[in-house]
């Protein structure tokens, strides 16, 4: 009877799921894609990943410890995830100083200025990526070509992404069927044999990670599936209208950052809607904007911009799209 008891309001049980476990679940889901990138891009992929993760975690630690003077919360894993996603969104031969600048922008500007984890309106990794893309357009768009595992870094052979080849070619009046000869086959695209950002190339590995996320109940199917379906439907219609001017939907799904964006970037908890209905609207928005940019925009790829634009609508979606309440509302005096 000497025990002094703890007293708290109910419930007295908490589930085993924690923020940290969720974040490391995302890291696990990213591993197949990381392995594929290392397989195709070699040493460059490893360096970019390590630098990005380290820079993100260090930025968060320094800001929390020395500027905000709060208890650093880097162990929650959110900075690691941002670092990985940032690395996945850049070419594998990107100079280290650019990665560090990107990491500082991601964590320092896009995350910590808004109050840290849970308060940022825009996906930090994407803000970092877009910042780098605008500031260092040359370095950010010189994509190394896959060449099997190698130890080269800055001197990798570079070329254009399939989407860029397609976009440029169509602008110059070439037909899609002719351009298809210049890009890898659909099967190659599926397992990742193409030029592009480090982590976006491997559709197969990314889908595998996505299945893991859904199975672990870290994400629901709503966002990725609606984005992919929207892109497929939109490009399918265009392809049906004029197959010589527009590429087929499968090509659109397998190239560029759409898989990475749909499965990992758009599903970021903080910057995505919280209800299923909201998620579907958000997903459709991303899909439509992506295709608009890809087909008619100045950039060959638009997933990052599409997600950031839709991020801005998330507070609105959360405010106006409500879950279905239990029971009809009865007017009472």
């Amino acid at each position: 009877m000497s025990n002094i008891l703890n007293v708290s309001p109910s419930p007295h049980r908490q589930s085993a799921e924690t923020t940290r476990k969720l974040m490391y679940g995302v890291v696990i889901a990213l591993l197949p894609a990381l392995a594929t990138s290392i397989w195709f891009f070699g040493m460059g992929a490893i360096i970019v990943t390590l630098v990005s993760v380290f820079a993100c975690v260090a930025t968060e630690y320094i800001i929390q410890k020395f500027i905000l003077k709060t208890k650093p919360s880097i162990s929650d894993g959110s900075a690691v995830v941002t670092g990985l996603l940032l690395a996945f969104n850049v070419p594998s031969n990107l100079p280290v100083y650019i990665i560090i600048i990107g990491a500082i922008v991601s964590i320092g500007v896009a995350k910590m200025t808004f109050g840290g984890l849970g308060n940022n309106p825009f996906n930090p990794a994407l803000v970092g990526r877009v910042f780098m893309l605008i500031s260092f357009p040359v370095q950010m768009t010189s994509w190394p070509l896959p060449q099997g595992f190698n130890t080269g870094y800055a001197d990798a052979v570079t070329g254009a992404t399939p989407l860029a080849i397609m976009s440029e070619g169509i602008k110059n009046g070439e037909t899609v069927s002719a351009l298809m000869e210049k890009v890898p086959t659909h099967l190659q695209l599926f397992y990742g044999y193409m030029g592009g950002s480090m982590g976006e190339i491997a559709a197969a590995a990314l889908i595998l990670g996505g299945i893991y996320l859904v199975w672990r109940k870290i994400i629901t199917w709503h966002i990725p599936v609606t984005i992919l379906l929207t892109v497929a439907a939109f490009t399918g219609i265009l392809w049906g209208v004029d197959p010589t001017k527009y590429a087929d939907p499968l090509f659109h799904l397998l190239t560029g950052g759409i898989m990475l964006g749909a499965i990992f970037m758009a599903t970021d908890y903080v910057t995505s809607p919280m209800t299923a209905k909201g998620m579907v609207i958000y997903g459709i928005g991303i899909g439509v904007i992506t295709v608009l940019i890809r087909v008619w925009g100045a950039y060959p790829e638009g997933v990052s911009f599409a997600i950031l634009i839709m991020n801005a609508f998330v507070p609105l979606l959360n405010m106006y799209i409500k879950p279905k309440r239990f029971g009809k509302e009865v007017k009472r005096g």
């Binding site: 002094i4 008891l5 703890n6 007293v7 708290s8 309001p9």
Partner: peptide, 22 residues
Amino acid sequence: TRTSYYDGAVSCRVAHALYGGQ
């Protein structure tokens, strides 16, 4: 003397609604 430890949300109003206190 403390007869129990309060372990709920850090809010007097919540604790007050819960019980007599620590």
